[in-house]
Design a binder for these strands. Structure first.
Lengths: 133, 133
DNA sequence: GAATTTCCTACCAAATCAGTAGGAAATATT
DNA sequence: AATATTTCCTACTGATTTGGTAGGAAATTC
């Protein structure tokens, strides 16, 4: 299940995309507009920056902005940052140690297919398409 | 992410399906065969019975068996028992209170589409198709 | 120098997860 | 009737995750 971490990250991305005018927008502004705790956003959003999805600058009049056009982002790449690769089961998650039962596992192929389906689905939705314009 | 609860439930169903000869199989047997704690299975598996997916009887020579042919089960109906309706986000889960932001939510349609995709995917996989035969 | 903003670390309460413990009730076998 | 086996039921527990808060350092603008 997608956590608030991932949903908040997506909301921030949508917020930035809708208000996009090329200038930096502070988390404080977004937090107020989206009614999310500023302190919590300060913990979540830097991971988007580290992943190269947004760019931010410190200091007065600082804030964040998108790196590229909203049409160029997919929901998949946003969610993968916070949701550990969108793995449906632990053994497919990034950094999982390999399962000793894999050779006899009846379900691994199904989970892999589902992970692909999930990535294809979210990979086909652009950030732009979520915006209210 | 699908928890061990759901994965164990599915493994038990596959085990029952593969060894299906119409007689009851004890959890002890399954626990040993699948290398899962008996005590833990005793907590998980009764929910499958309550949902009408398996039938069990107490007492010596008791145990569980499937109610119908493995071809007649879908993975979806099994997972829905333990995984709260396979909802991708909290607001779509069974028993969730309705979201006050729903009217302005940019993403709810996407989550609903994804939930449908998920249910269609797992609904198309039969228990039988997972078995090693 | 003051104000504002990101950045960073540590902390915290509640919930969930994964599992254990102990025994009661039901049933079959002897 | 006694015993063994099995499900059924409730309570407990330790570890991890979730969803935050707190406090302040560093960067930048005015």
């Amino acid at each position: 299940m997608i956590s608030t971490r991932g949903r908040y990250a997506l909301r921030v991305m949508v917020d930035l995309a809708e208000l996009d005018e090329g200038n930096y927008i502070s988390l404080k502004t977004i937090a107020e507009r989206q009614d999310i705790s500023l302190k919590y956003l300060e913990r979540i959003i830097p991971s988007l920056k580290k992943a190269g999805l947004i760019e931010g600058i410190q200091g007065k009049n600082g804030g964040y902005r998108l790196c590229k056009n909203p049409k160029k982002y997919t929901v998949g790449e946003i969610l993968r940052v916070t949701e550990n690769d969108l793995a449906p089961v632990a053994c497919l998650a990034k950094g999982a140690e390999k399962c000793p039962r894999k050779s006899q596992c009846r379900t691994i192929k199904m989970w892999e297919d589902y992970q692909k389906l999930t990535n294809d689905f979210f990979g086909s939705i652009t950030l732009d398409s979520l915006c209210n314009k």
